[in-house]
Design a protein around this nucleic acid. Structure first.
Lengths: 257, 257
DNA sequence: CGTCTAATTGAAGCATCTCAACATGCGTGG
DNA sequence: CCACGCATGTTGAGATGCTTCAATTAGACG
């Protein structure tokens, strides 16, 4: 197991705000079964009634929904430390699926255990509530993008968001980021065709904002990329510590690798 | 004041699930200042740090965000009984605005009071958490529509949703619904131009699914409208009682006025 | 070395947008 | 009670951002 679940979760909670000693103690009570899942497989499927919540240990997941026409809308991306279906604690029937984009490791926490802990430890409960609220804030921002921004701006915005989220929990840093998603995934997340994503990524390269090669994105001009994406990170509601990590890192300050 | 805040709120909570006697008692402790707001004015603005949560007594509100280009994306609509900015309890800075679409009455509950009650009464706290999760589920469904459905389907879907939500808390019933929003509002909610909304509403009328006249929608063929909108109400996560209200009402069963 | 997935490129089509003119209806002030 | 102004909705015509289809290339893997 590459990472410790409690460290990961505390780091995630700290990225959102202040974690009280009580909340930290409660986190250490969380235990569950570890499960590995292969790329392309579902963790939970649309219509399921799950009995556990998932914490991501490693890998990369997405939430998505398949439509009648056979098209797919990706609703969110999730990295190590995320709780991609915390909502199932209170919404018993899944209205979408959760799938793995690459081989991933998860921890399954029974709803019973989760409910017990959030009730006994309001501090932790409120932090987790806050997590689902930030989740919703990201949905809103995506809605804004899909509804009112063009492909160029939308893609730049998504890449900014993913980079900032990786930095905010110290998963990746610097100018080069491993991003295990295809151009079709980006299209399905932003309501675009894979063809148009390809062309638009070439445009972003042409404007020397980034380089995109299968699964790897290299930032060439962070400020330019943020500007192109109309990216304002308020909606991520990062805590003070995470905001510093994001702003003062290599991306904005340094040029070398 | 036309409605009692506690009745409204209990009715809202009942539409989502079972309300325990303890939770009901806690609701009756909620008190706050009443405030009237004129059509077109903001309740809270993007960037604000509110100190109160809002409960809608009467009227109709929306959450929205203005973009650099001067365009607007509407993120949600809110009716009597809704808590359109409950999230501000844990996300201190607003990442969007809340505005009134018609003259509306609100109750302002101080965050301090709200936080006290959700901590003291976990039952109520969990119901309110559930409310914010359903909020997020609606965001997801809108994302799916904006990203992957055409204008015709999108508009039909939105109208189905608004009708079901009104029915689920017994605000309106039958075949005729007062809906105090303009075609521009619909466009801004669905990422469409007002011109295209106008044309598409004419198409829906032509297919004899509904009639749309400024602020009033009359359902002609409820099953047809649901089908046209690919509308499946799972994502609204209604409680059993509300589901019955929605399904067994005049809309589906009767033809007369 | 062949196979598979992902990405690229070109060309044609179309859903939706923008601009602009006009119609409708409602509230207000004279 | 009429005249005016303003917000809303309708309609036409031309523009465009993005899609779809199809063919080709590039890279990864057994």
């Amino acid at each position: 197991m590459s990472k410790n679940i409690h460290d990961l979760l505390v780091r995630k909670l700290e990225s959102m705000g202040t974690v009280s000693p009580e909340a930290r103690d409660c986190v250490s009570e969380l235990h569950g079964e570890v499960r590995s899942i292969a790329a392309g497989e579902d963790v939970v499927s649309d219509g399921d009634k799950p009995t556990h919540c998932v914490i991501v240990l490693s890998g990369f997941l997405c939430r998505y929904k398949l439509l009648a026409a056979g098209t797919r809308q990706i609703l969110s991306f999730h990295q190590a430390g995320d709780l991609p279906d915390l909502q199932s604690l209170f919404l018993k029937t899944m209205d979408h699926s959760v799938g793995a984009l690459v081989d991933s490791d998860l921890v399954l926490i029974p709803h019973r255990v989760m409910l017990n802990i959030v009730t006994r430890c309001p501090d932790l409960g409120h932090l987790l509530w806050r997590d689902t609220l930030i989740d919703a804030a990201i949905f809103r921002e995506w809605m804004i993008g899909i509804g009112r921004r063009n492909a160029y701006t939308r893609i730049a915005h998504l890449l900014c968001e993913l980079i900032v989220r990786m930095r905010s929990v110290r998963l990746q840093d610097g100018l080069r980021y491993d991003l295990p998603i295809t151009q079709s995934d980006i299209g399905d997340a932003l309501g675009l065709s894979n063809v148009h994503v390809s062309r638009t990524l070439r445009d972003l390269e042409g404007d020397e904002l980034l380089e995109y090669r299968k699964g790897v994105i290299t930032v060439r001009d962070w400020d330019g990329l943020k500007e192109a994406g109309e990216f304002d990170l308020t909606y991520l509601h990062l805590g003070p510590e995470a905001a510093r990590l994001v702003e003062n890192g290599d991306v904005s300050a340094e040029a070398g690798c």
